[in-house]
Design a protein around this nucleic acid. Sequence first.
DNA 1: AGTTTTTTCTTATATTATAAAGCAAAATGA
DNA 2: TCATTTTGCTTTATAATATAAGAAAAAACT
Lengths: 144, 144
Amino acid sequence: MDQIDTEILQQLQRSAKISMKELATIVHLSSPAVIERVKKLEEQGIIEGYTTKVNLKKINRSIQAIILFKSIDCKSLSNFCNAHPDVLECYRVAGEISYIVKIATYSVETLEQFIDDAMPYGTPSTNIVLSRTENSVIKPFTLE
Amino acid sequence: MDQIDTEILQQLQRSAKISMKELATIVHLSSPAVIERVKKLEEQGIIEGYTTKVNLKKINRSIQAIILFKSIDCKSLSNFCNAHPDVLECYRVAGEISYIVKIATYSVETLEQFIDDAMPYGTPSTNIVLSRTENSVIKPFTLE
DNA sequence: AGTTTTTTCTTATATTATAAAGCAAAATGA
DNA sequence: TCATTTTGCTTTATAATATAAGAAAAAACT
């Protein structure tokens, strides 16, 4: 991981579909050299994959919520959440809270249904997302 | 948005770098037809972009935390968080909590520093992430 | 039924990814 | 210190892919 790899990673995060040719001119290398570096980043597991960001509102997932659970049966809740199609992310955490679930659902009714279904596993504290910001490019740590 | 678009979106979420040719065989269309559909999904804003998933631990971001704030000066906190390089996501929410920040940092020391720096904006409740699951393919809603 | 619009296919071309060979610098080891 | 190995790069050549253009089919509308 040198500065060139760092630049490559940042560019790929910014846009996964950048061509190896364009990437090559940015980092002042030939495209086969860049392809080789990218392949190594993949093999090392630093790059986990390439994905597409979808606008949730435009596919009718108009409501997002972050639901917090305290002192619960984590195993059962985890199974329930991972099987539910509206769940985006689950976090097992240590702190005041023990489990955090992020969901994207269709309506207040489907949210209500989710909360009801989750109830048996613990007491949910539901927080509706009003707005969100994201840092889509994470700068890797580099030794100079 | 028909069933073909739904399939395309799911495949692209699974792997943004799938070739249009391969996608075409999956949905039983020619590649120009698929390219056209993808372009439309982009123009409609349903596809927001393509990104690369990076393994945070492998770039030394060994600690992740979800930090909750109650009744705070959202504007200032938001500015602080969005300027901080360790912050991944911020949520303005309505519920028991009013602001949620997800960070990926290097060590307990850098986490401590973040908490100290965030203190002026409200009382943070820090939850260290122990494990995480993700549903990386969100199924769009389709009329049959 | 006829017209217009949209979607798709085929073909042809341009772009891009990738494999191969060769070279130079750096690292390793006797 | 010198030989050997490894690593990373470049150039060249080839294969694969994306994409533009035009024609045909399907769908929607009057």
